[in-house]
Computed example of a mutant assay.
Amino acid sequence: MSQNSSWVFLPGTLCDERLWFRMWKQMHIQDRRYVPLQWANNLEEMDALTSYACDNGPVTLIGFSMGGYIAARYALANPDDVEHLILLGYDPAGLPDQEVAQRKQFIRHLQNGRFTPMADSRLAQFISASGANADFTRQMVRDMESDLGGSVLLAQTRATTEREDFCAQLATAPFKTTLIGAEQDRIAPLQRLAQSAALCGANLIKVEDAEHMFPLQKPELVATLLEQA
């Protein structure tokens, strides 16, 4: 991949640019851009922020988790703006019905003003206490959660719960698509990503000994994988 092209990064739910900081230090790219999805109140604002960052494309568009959904959505609507779509910890087939139902219940909970820090059991689904680089990763997740808060979580969850199945569209898209998944990811399991990659005609890259928050767990490795994708 050309390191002279523009690289546009989108974060996941309740994440900000801190998700990428340690990776950016390892990367040799001249034009790096960040989409502050935490600023958006709805899906239309997320699309607008992404469009602004992709100006003067085509770009390499990189989205993590929820940011992967926004990145894929934008790329399919604006294929001339994208040279390479890289989706980390995101399944372009969409969310399972059970997860959609759970998220809708959670939205009602947040709408009633009941935002509380993530339970340790929920955090363990993203990064376990015994995972690689666990202490730093868990603290960073907690810090971003505390700083961004309930209003951002509500806006992001409400905007991105109904996710289309993009596999068929990606299979015929004119840009290159790469999926990157973690071996021990419990949010976007690698087996599901492998199935979707086959449907999309996409390359699948596995990050070993890592969980859903693998950009924080293994930034040096992921930076290298991105530059080689």
Score class of each variant (00 low, 15 high):
Q111I: 08
R103H: 08
Q102L: 14
E83C: 04
P11W: 03
Q111G: 10
Q30G: 14
K25W: 15
A124I: 02
E45M: 06
I107E: 06
L199D: 04
T160L: 14
I107T: 05
T160I: 04
L87P: 02
E164C: 10
A53M: 03
Q191A: 13
S128D: 09
L199C: 09
L216T: 06
R18L: 09
E17V: 09
L190M: 07
Q139D: 15
M118Q: 10
V8W: 07
A53K: 02
P219W: 00
L204E: 08
R73F: 04
A229K: 00
R122I: 15
F64C: 02
A210T: 04
T13G: 13
A101V: 14
L37M: 09
A210D: 04
P189D: 04
A132D: 12
F115R: 08
I180R: 01
G68A: 07
N203M: 10
N56C: 10
A171W: 03
R122A: 14
G57L: 03
G68Q: 05
S121H: 12
A132S: 10
G131C: 07
S6G: 10
H109Q: 13
E145R: 01
I70E: 07
Q111R: 13
P92I: 00
L76T: 02
L37V: 02
G131W: 05
L154M: 09
M140F: 07
T172G: 01
A124M: 13
R163L: 10
Q125K: 10
L10Y: 01
L199R: 13
L43K: 14
A198W: 13
A171V: 00
S5L: 15
Q105G: 15
A155V: 02
A48W: 13
D47R: 15
S151P: 12
C200Y: 00
W24L: 11
R32I: 14
Q125S: 10
A129F: 10
S146G: 13
Q98G: 14
M27Q: 06
A119H: 15
D81W: 04
I70A: 10
A197M: 05
Q217K: 08
G113S: 08
L61P: 01
Q111C: 11
K176C: 00
C167H: 05
C54K: 03
V152I: 12
S121G: 08
D135I: 15
F166M: 08
N56I: 07
A48C: 15
I62P: 00
I70P: 04
R103K: 06
G94F: 05
R192S: 12
E17N: 09
T172N: 12
L153A: 11
R122H: 15
D16T: 06
A159F: 06
K206L: 11
F166H: 07
S2K: 15
Q184D: 14
R138Q: 05
D143W: 13
N42T: 01
P215D: 05
E227R: 06
S128A: 13
D91V: 00
Q184L: 12
Q26D: 09
S151M: 14
E208H: 15
R73P: 05
P58M: 11
W20M: 03
G131L: 05
T116P: 11
W24E: 08
R158D: 11
V35F: 03
R142N: 04
Q156I: 07
Q184P: 08
L153Q: 13
A197I: 01
S121C: 14
